[in-house]
């Protein structure tokens, strides 16, 4: 079984084999994302209770804020795992996946901040507070920006992928340290604690389901978009090979 698995992994670690495979998967994940999004939004707007204890109607932002924040962190973890695999075992496909994940991760980080700000204004009276989680999220956005800037500053695609991959791994080691430091800093300065304990207990199951389904929808969306982007990257990096040349000339 181990042998068969490793053969499968070897097969898909070749860009030539992965390209058509990704192309077949994209519509599946795309449609799954759309359907889950509709279900999740329906639960969020029509099934879940209109108010959540002390939180008024505006709390429906939770259904995209929390999944976006989850995705921003998951994507960074997955991205640095791919980068680590690429560095240690020198697998090109893994390198390209890390590159393809970054823009979507940065987008979800920005959306988590944006929706957090719009949720914060009615509930704490300010668009921005230096809460530990908001601050960590902001630093995460800086890490994504650093990754993408380094990537675009290097012309040679191989060096770009490897250098930014190393940066992602170093950043991933730092993320828990940063989170811990920011929390420490926050408690020293008697900062805000945004998580109202009783809200957690009173949470209706429909709210949890809505959040989970939308998080799943975001996952499916991410997979579809990232696979699409990685196909573009494969074409660019493999443009000298005959299979890309043939594919391109058959299309034009």
């Amino acid at each position: 079984m181990g042998f068969k698995n490793s053969v499968i992994w070897l097969y898909f670690s070749s860009p030539r084999n992965f390209y058509p495979f990704a192309g077949k998967l994209i519509p599946w994940f795309g449609w799954l994302a759309a359907v889950l999004m509709i279900i999740g939004l329906y639960i969020g707007f029509f099934v879940a209770p209109p108010v959540l204890s002390d939180q008024k109607e505006y709390y429906v932002i939770i259904f995209i804020h929390v999944p976006a924040a989850w995705m921003s962190m998951f994507i960074y973890i997955i991205m640095s795992l791919y980068a680590f695999i690429a560095l240690v075992w020198n697998i090109k496909m893994s390198e390209m996946m890390a590159t393809a994940l970054a823009p979507t991760g940065a987008m979800f980080t920005f959306l988590a901040l944006w929706t957090g700000a719009l949720w914060g204004r009615p509930s704490w009276g300010a668009y921005w507070v230096w809460d530990a989680r908001l601050t960590s999220e902001l630093i995460l956005l800086f890490l994504y920006i650093g990754f993408m800037s380094l990537q675009s500053a290097i012309d040679d695609p191989r060096r770009a992928a490897r250098a930014s991959g190393l940066l992602a791994v170093v950043g991933a080691i730092n993320v828990p340290i940063i989170y811990f430091s920011v929390r420490w800093w926050n408690t020293l300065h008697q900062g805000f604690s945004v998580q109202p304990a009783q809200t957690q207990q009173l949470m209706d199951p429909s709210i949890k389901w809505g959040m989970l389904i939308l998080a799943l929808a975001f996952w499916m969306y991410t997979i579809a978009v990232v696979l699409y982007r990685v196909r573009t990257i494969i074409l660019e990096r493999e443009r000298q090979t005959t299979w890309v040349q043939e594919l391109v000339s058959s299309k034009s």
């Binding site: 630093i139 890490l143 650093g146 800037s149 380094l150 500053a153 250098a163 340290i177 920011v182």
Partner: peptide, 23 residues
């Protein structure tokens, strides 16, 4: 080391390194 020999390396370093300085 990561920005070695790049155009605009100086500004780029700050983007990479400052978030890691925070702790």
């Amino acid at each position: 080391a990561l920005t070695l020999g790049l155009r605009g390396g100086g500004v780029l370093i700050s983007l990479l390194v400052l978030p890691l300085y925070i702790p």
